[in-house]
């Protein structure tokens, strides 16, 4: 399992691996929003948590079809399925690798980009915390979507349509948590909901992903 994780991380950082793809998309979205909205700093602070969460979500979505499609194309997925690893472990490791290469950089970049959106001081900690808790759910749900569409050529559109509705709760509670802390309200309820979604998806979705992958490999 460690070998698979190391291989996936290595593939991601080498040429054409798409390591910087999500991060640079996030950067572009967040840098462009102030130009579109205008320089009114009050307005920017109001929308900052939402924009940062939305940017992170879309950046994550952008890299989903790489999770399994590349391994499907070159036949590694067939070979992995016949290897001694259980399919559930394979999809969990793939989600983890996706989170490390996409989710984690977004979490680390968010405070820097928050500066560009005039994020109020009280918002930095909760925003980073909410992204840290929420992005693993995005990777796990995304792996499920990728498993559903793995045999399809150019399945990117279908993948986005399938996954976006499943991302909505994470987005709502994640952005809500940052917004509430900025306004001085109690942020515990959205935090707990967000953590619950993440734990639930990590516990259950790998089984679903493995099941659909087995069917897709037939």
């Amino acid at each position: 399992m460690i070998a698979l994780l190391i291989r996936d991380l290595r593939l991601a950082v080498r040429a054409g691996g798409g390591f910087g793809l999500g991060l640079s998309f996030f950067l572009i979205v967040v840098v462009l929003v102030p130009f579109g909205v205008g320089p009114e700093s009050g307005l920017l602070s109001t929308i900052a948590p939402g924009i940062l969460w939305l940017g992170a979500l879309l950046a994550c979505l952008l890299s989903l079809d790489r999770i399994l499609a590349l391994d499907w194309e070159d036949g590694s997925l067939d070979l992995l399925a016949t290897a001694p690893l259980p399919m559930e472990a394979i999809v969990s490791i793939k989600s983890l690798a996706h989170w490390i290469t996409t989710g984690l950089p977004l979490v680390l970049a968010a405070p820097v980009l928050g500066l560009l959106l005039n994020l109020p001081d009280a918002g930095y900690g909760p925003l980073v915390l909410s992204l840290l808790i929420g992005t693993p759910a995005l990777s796990v749900i995304g792996t499920f979507g990728a498993a559903l569409t793995v045999g399809l050529k150019r399945g990117g559109l279908l993948l986005s349509l399938l996954v976006l509705p499943l991302y909505v709760p994470t987005l709502i509670f994640g952005a809500e948590m940052a917004r509430r802390s900025i306004e001085g309200m109690d942020a515990t309820p959205p935090l707990l909901m967000l953590a619950g979604i993440t734990c639930g998806t990590i516990a259950l979705l790998p089984f679903a992903s493995a099941a659909v992958l087995r069917v897709n490999l037939r």
Binding site: R7, L11, S76
Partner: peptide, 23 residues
């Protein structure tokens, strides 16, 4: 099968070592 499951950005040794580790 028909395709070898080879990752083009990894070296020959890394490709094979991965499978040796998996098995």
């Amino acid at each position: 099968g028909h395709s070898d499951g080879i990752k083009s950005v990894l070296t020959v040794r890394e490709n094979l070592q991965f499978w040796a580790d998996v098995f």
